[in-house]
């Protein structure tokens, strides 16, 4: 089939613009990967290079020197991400469905109830005391799952999607067929929301994967520490505190190459899941197929 000129044009435009943006996005990451394989001496002397002057896998041998530990760290992260994302997605979309339904009289009150928490918070002290002293969640897996669980933004995006792209008529007819609210939600709304569920699911999973704040605040036990926190500690130890370091006897700073290698190790697995989710929000769905 021959493409019409306007389609050729937009594809060309797409390749040029997206290609450029993709290059700008990827180059730094590639530089990072390449330089994580560089020797410390080379990084400090020549800066980041497009091709290292001195190759060295030292950084990786250091990370994997203790394979049990790194496996454990991966395990915690994957467990928390999987469990958290599943739970969060289910409950978020359920709530979103409720505030999206026109017949729910207080739906705007409920939306405001959620949105308000975005604007005001009681600050760190109260939150910390609540979670650690009153709820006793410190040093549990639950704290890693619960603290980053819901994002108001995600719920409201879901609400928006359900309200605008699922025709009222489908819900009405299901209701006439005798389906109850829970049934409508599971059998009609969820399947029809696949694209947005995939994207929100991705956001949630990324949120869990990249969460270093929760473990920083609430996890002290080494065997409960997730991946990003390990990375975070390494990266952060250098910068924020340098002002006080003058008072210390010595603080062993992590090597530049180690920081890069750790970023690669912490990013790799989550990037691999992207293509699997991706088909849901690119392929789209046809409403007819679900209805029938």
């Amino acid at each position: 089939m021959k493409k019409s000129p306007d389609l050729v044009a937009i594809n060309l435009l797409g390749w040029i613009i997206i290609g450029f943006l993709a290059l700008v996005a990827t180059a730094p990451f590639l530089i990072l990967v390449i330089n994580s394989l560089s020797s410390e001496h080379s990084i400090i002397n020549y800066g980041y290079q497009l091709w290292p002057k001195e190759f060295s896998a030292d950084a990786y041998t250091m990370i994997f020197e203790n394979p049990q530990r790194i496996l454990r760290v991966y395990g915690i992260t994957i467990l928390v991400t999987g469990l958290g994302t599943g739970l969060s997605l289910l409950l978020s979309s359920m709530a979103a469905y409720v505030v999206a339904r026109r017949e729910v009289k207080y739906r705007n009150v409920l939306s405001f109830f959620l949105y308000f928490t975005q604007l005001f918070n009681g600050g760190l002290v109260t939150y910390y005391l609540l979670v650690s002293r009153d709820l006793h969640l410190s040093n549990t897996l639950w704290v890693l799952i619960l603290v980053p669980m819901f994002s108001v933004m995600n719920i409201l995006i879901l609400r928006n999607f359900i309200a605008t792209s699922i025709p009222e008529s489908i819900i009405e007819s299901a209701r006439i067929d005798g389906m109850d609210d829970l049934g409508i939600f599971f059998r009609i709304v969820l399947p029809l929301s696949a694209p947005v569920l995939a994207s929100i699911g991705l956001f949630t999973a990324l949120g869990y994967w990249n969460d270093w704040w929760t473990p920083m605040m609430f996890i002290q036990k080494r065997d409960l520490q997730p991946l990003q926190y390990t990375l975070y500690q390494m990266l952060a130890s250098v910068t924020y505190t340098a002002q006080m370091v003058g008072n210390m006897p010595t603080v062993n700073l992590p090597k530049e190459s180690l920081k890069l290698a750790m970023t690669v190790v912490a990013t790799g697995p989550i990037i691999l899941i992207y293509p699997f989710l991706q088909k849901h929000f690119v392929a789209g769905i046809t409403i007819g197929s679900v209805k029938g």
């Binding site: 993709a22 996005a25 990451f29 990072l32 990249n210 990266l235 952060a236 990037i271």
Partner: peptide, 17 residues
């Protein structure tokens, strides 16, 4: 698929890096 994955990479690089 490829372009989207590529565009996502910067998300993983923390600001320190």
């Amino acid at each position: 698929k490829t372009f989207q994955t590529m565009l996502f990479l910067p998300y993983f690089i923390s600001w320190v890096t």
